[in-house]
Amino acid sequence: MIPRHARAIALSLLPVISLPAGAAPSGWRQLNLPVGVTSISRDAYDLHMLAIYVCILIGIAVFGAMIYAMINFRKSKGAVADRTLTHSTKAEVIWTAIPAFILIFLAWQTVPALIHIEDTRDSDMTIRITGYQWKWHYEYMGEGVSFYSALGERSNTARQRNAALRPAEVDHYLLEVDEVLVLPVGAKIRYLISANDVIHAWWVPELGIKRDAIPGFINEGWFRIDQPGTYRGQCAELCGKDHGFMPIVVEALPPEEFAAWLAARRPAAQAALASSQP
């Protein structure tokens, strides 16, 4: 409770530079970390903004001192060097102690978020994510539904050298896939992640999730999507020549629509499974 409270105070102390809350996605928003649609992404965003404000304050002090020195102690203005000013225990203690306190404050702020991220208890469903060179494979555990998700056809055409189709003509160029990962809103989704060949990383900024997919080993995490929508991401760990061409698209649906989608996928998935197990 205390850290959250402190963070709120710190943020409220900075009304001048904080952005109007609830502003429509402006140019600036697109250039900043997304607030995202999970508690994890919001924690990351809050910490990010807090760190930026702290850095701006320190920056004003430090750069201000430097600029002041550069303006006022110029030889061309007749400044004479005070060659005795070479040591001051008091000043040095102060500028060791103040950063230490600021850092302790920042570190303290991260603890609840860290504990929150690791809490995979009581999940409502589990998906299994596997990285391949160069596509993703998703499996809805216990549902018999699984599929590969690779770069969309139009992006794949436009990304070739000397392609007739230009990237600007493709909607969501490089951020569209042939099969999207459909997930329900409001459910605690646990994911198990691994890789088939080399290390990949599954990153969707608006979910606040980035996790390495390591061949031979499984890792897990969780997220709960709050709002329906389409959320796009990319592989974040260099995985070979088409590393830039294995995007992730998550479509979050209301629970009923998701259930309908899953039910529709089940028989098809089973038929496909029986006829062609790789």
Binding site: T120, R121, D122, T126, L192, S194, G216, F217, I218, E220
Partner: peptide
């Protein structure tokens, strides 16, 4: 007690 789901994976 905080662990309720375990996964055993073989490759």
């Amino acid at each position: 007690a905080r662990f309720k789901n375990l996964t055993l994976s073989y490759r």
